[in-house]
Amino acid sequence: MFDWIVTHFGFLKHVPLLPHVFDAWLKLVSLFTNKNLSDYIDDIEAEVLSWQHTDVSAHKYGGVQFNAFNRELGHIHGNGLLDILFSQTQKLVLMNRYPIQHHHVFKHSGWVSFKIKTVSDKKLAIELLRAAYIQNNS
């Protein structure tokens, strides 16, 4: 559903506020499909905010954006889709090690996507964000 909307109506992401409304709608739908998801996202947010020089903001295309050292680490959409930016080299290393995918839109960039569904996914999401944090700090 999310992929279908992004593919066919992705151009609407430039309409002010619309991505945020879509993200709120995703959160509402997720209540019925995975009621623990919003808690997982809250836990990830709390963990990232406990690291030095981090903050969160609203992602321009909807969702929670994690920043460190004034740069974006990644963001989570309301359906639990985590997007993180790595260098191309690190992306390939991580894709061999973890069940993560190319970014759902920018396949040839350093971005990766990972769908959070379970507690263990939450732990992996924190691990990946930590790797991005360390990369940005080095």
Partner: peptide
Amino acid sequence: ILCFTLTGALLARTVYRR
């Protein structure tokens, strides 16, 4: 109304934190 109220609340929560 629910969708836009929730959008406003979640966006504002992030904005107020800053």
